[in-house]
Amino acid sequence: MDSFLAQYIDPYYLRILVLIGINLILALGLNIITGVTGQLSMGHAGFMSIGAYTSAILSMQFGYPYFLSLLAGALMAALFGFLIGIPTLRLEGDYLAMVTIGFAEIIKVFFLNFEPGGKAVGLSGIPQNTTFVIVWVIVLIVIILNARLLRTRMGRAFYAIRENEIAAESCGINTTRLKVLAFTIGSFLGGLGGGLYAHYMYFIRPQDFAFMKSIELLNMVVLGGMGSIPGTILGTTILTLAPEMLRVVAEYRLLFYGALLVILMIFRPNGLLGDIRIYDIKKRFRKKEVETCRS
């Protein structure tokens, strides 16, 4: 299938599309934690690295089949998300942010000293099983499940926690449990994205999952509009494309990237799509109907 696509699409573009897909899975996971539930996580790359290393080592050194090692990587990340979430999600706002940064840094240092992971040199020779089709099929599944979750009971409860924790408790929501749950789901997607990344890149090292990567993912969620799936898709696409587009300005690339973040936030402080959800669009249509009836 990919070789078929490669006849029509330039490999360079195909590669960008794959990267957008992987970033989408990562960002949608972070969106559940930060965008929807409102728990600021600045260490998402840490979960990504757990998924990447777990799956890469399983398929390289233990001969696990591709999908099984992907799943194992995602589950391992989810397990860590769960274990870290329990004691830390009592912390509020920026304290939690700091703990997530710290956790990701510790994970990075761990992999820098991790013999089976090749220490600072990293792992190379990971089988390149991740293809365009696999990535985008998974992206579609993730988006559909995500959308369903967010418009029903548990998803609404996640939003409620973000909006007002005390009121959420008064509605019978066990906020601590649900925060840990959101964190676990988000970490699972982080691990999944990491596994896909490792099996696409052929080569991973601890620096790939440093603080900047976490920040990049957070930018994708906030830029599009917190908690909105279309927003996350838009933000991820723009910020994955931006460095590529900015290649023309060569070494000034990051300068523009930094300035872009500031400018976008000044002009669209609540993200590009604000908090647009499906019913906003429905509402718009509804209003039109009413108006045409009147006129």
Binding site: T34, Y257, G258
Partner: peptide, 23 residues
Amino acid sequence: LRGKSTRLSALISAIGVSIFLST
């Protein structure tokens, strides 16, 4: 951004400045 955005937007703006200055 003050007064018209969430704290997170200001944080992203700060990250933008950070990237800008180090580059």
